[in-house]
Structure formats: C-alpha cells, structure tokens
Amino acid sequence: MSSEPAENSPETPSESTPEAGRWKMGMAVGMLFAVLGGVASWAAVQASYPVFQPPPDQIDPMAGVPEAIQKKLDRNNAIVILAVVAGLIAAALAAGEAALRRSWALIVVALVVSGLVAAALGSWAGWAGHALFEYLRPRRELSELARTAMVQTLMLGLLGCSVGVGVAAVVGRRVRGRLSCFIAGLLGGVLAGMLYPVAASVVGLITPVITDTLIPARAGERLLWIGLTALILGLLLPAVCGQGACCRCRTPAETRPQED
C-alpha cells in the first residue's frame, strides 16, 4: 500500500525547494556588506598602523633602525594588519547573511566566531606575505610590479581563504558548502592580489603610488588595497556559496513518503 502526497499540499521552502539551501545574500548585497567591513578595517588600520614601532633606544641617529629589528617589526605589523582586515570583512559578510535570515542570535555568533576564525587564519597570510616579500626583495632581476604582484597574490589569496573559512564557520552547514566558501575566498583573494598592482600603477599615472611595499604606505593606497579585496570577495562569496551548497536541502523526491 502506498500513500501519495496531495497534489495541492504546500511544500515548505526549508524542505523542498532548492532556494532553501542558498544564501539569502545576493552579489550586490554581498559587495555592500564586504565594503562595510573593508571600510571598518581601513579605519582600524589608519588608526593603528604601524602597530609595532622600534624602541627609541634601538634607533641609531645615523644608521636608523637595524635591519634585523625592522624586519621583525614589519613581520609583526603585517600579521596584525592582515588579521584585522580578514576578521572584519568576514564578520561583516557573515553578519549580513545572518541579518537577512532575521536571526539576532546568528548575527552575534557571526560577528564573534567569523571574525575570530578569519583573524586567526589571516595572521598567517601576513606572515607568509612578509616571508615572500623578504625573499624577493634582493632579486632585482624582477621588476617592482612583478615582485608586488607575486607577494600580493600570495598574501591576499591566503587572506581570501581566511575570510571564506570564517564565513563558512557560521553560515556553511555542509562540507561542500564550506569548501565552496574556501575556494571562492581563495579565488577572490588571488584575483585581488593580481589586480592591485595594476590598479595602483594606473592610479600612479595621476598620483605617484609606492607599490614596492608589503602594506601600502599611504591612506589612499590602503583604501585601494583593502577596498578592491573587499569588493571582489563580496562579489564571489555569495555568487559561489549561494548556489545551494551551504545548507542541506531536501528535494521533493526525498520528502515523498516511502512505499510500505
């Protein structure tokens, strides 16, 4: 004996429609929230950078700061700055998705968990970027643009991964969905790392821009650096992770009662 569901019986979106598993956040809204996180991180960087400075007693009046000390300071500054940028962008994206789901509890969890997870992983992006920067610095056979592109591609690629994992820690509900966020973050970060030196060079035709630095030196350069990264991540994460991969959706066939 078999029982067939009534033809006109309503199917709840949470169980039967593919849309139930998708992000509520579209690409335009994703870019908006990512930019909000980017602006917040830019303001934080402006207010605190450099976080670590040489002690006055270690500054030589003639030679300046010893190279070994300066390298350590640059590394620590990069670790903190990349952690801040990753944490705030991830928190903004996850909180935006939680807000669209109208869950105050999820908003709080998103701000805390996504921010902390992304910040912890983003610190490694700063460490890796500094290591590659110091490795490539003496290689003068490479152009300034090439060195900058290689460093920023690695560093922002890892930052994008950090943002993707941070968002997936709250929003993702399946391995496939979390992997999608990771891949989207990686692709977005790599793309931002490749585009930033080119964009900075174009802007430099009007206003001189120093590209051969790990962390951009001036406010406008940092705004371009962070803003471009946030825009691309805000575009790709909802586009890739919003294709039904983040939640476990049940199809109509799965909801149909089994035959006895």
Rank of each mutant, 00 (worst) to 15 (best):
A47Y: 05
A47P: 00
A47H: 01
A47V: 11
S48D: 01
S48Q: 10
S48R: 04
Y49E: 07
Y49R: 10
P50N: 08
P50W: 01
P50T: 05
V51R: 06
V51G: 05
V51H: 04
V51M: 05
V51A: 11
F52K: 06
P54V: 06
P54I: 01
P55S: 15
P55V: 02
P55E: 14
P55K: 11
P56K: 15
P56M: 07
D57A: 12
D57T: 10
Q58A: 10
I59P: 10
I59T: 13
M62P: 05
M62V: 15
M62H: 14
A63T: 12
A63K: 15
G64E: 11
V65D: 10
V65G: 06
E67M: 06
E67Y: 09
E67P: 05
A68F: 07
A68S: 15
A68T: 08
A68L: 09
A68C: 03
I69N: 08
Q70M: 14
K71M: 13
K71A: 15
K71I: 04
K72Q: 14
K72T: 14
K72A: 12
L73R: 00
L73T: 12
L73S: 06
D74I: 12
R75S: 14
R75W: 06
R75P: 00
R75N: 07
R75Q: 11
N76L: 13
N76T: 08
N77L: 04
N77Y: 09
N77S: 06
N77M: 11
A78T: 05
I79P: 03
I79N: 00
V80W: 03
V80M: 13
V80L: 15
V80K: 10
I81A: 13
L82N: 15
L82E: 06
L82I: 00
L82Y: 15
A83P: 04
A83Y: 03
V84M: 08
V85R: 09
A86M: 10
A86Y: 09
A86L: 01
G87W: 03
G87I: 00
G87S: 02
L88Y: 04
